[in-house]
Amino acid sequence: MSDYVKYSSMSEGDDFLDPVPSFEVTKECVDKYIKATNDGTKELAVDDEQGRRVAPPMLAAVYVIDALRTRVGPPGGIHAKQQFKFHRPAYIGETLFTTAQVLKLYERKGRNYVEMTTETRNQHGELITNGMITRIWGKEG
């Protein structure tokens, strides 16, 4: 049995993540992301008016991919397209839950493509980010 999700096992309309994984927005993970991406945005270095520290909007790339990684494709898959709508930045201390649904499966030039919608909410159900990701599925051995 393979340890990755086979392309043929997915169907359009499937909920891809069950159970829905959680992601803790810690100061450590935010600091590490800011450092790795060389992001000097000044709003990320100060607390907002409510005393909260925001994470970079594109931390979505971490918490969404982290959720999707709970069911990975074969090695070598790559990202083809990405859409995000940032309803608001995540705050340090929040717990995020990302759901994903298979929207479309298709083949182009001998490669298998998977389109998925994603939606991320915090522990109170507040919408943080939604999006759509298109991945070229890695070749299955």
């Binding site: 909007p57 990405q82 859409q83 940032f86 309803h87």
Partner: peptide, 15 residues
């Protein structure tokens, strides 16, 4: 445009 990007920004890109 921090405010517009972080609070409601819609990104659509191809790699």
């Amino acid at each position: 445009n921090w405010q517009g990007w972080a609070y409601g920004g819609e990104l659509n890109v191809s790699f």
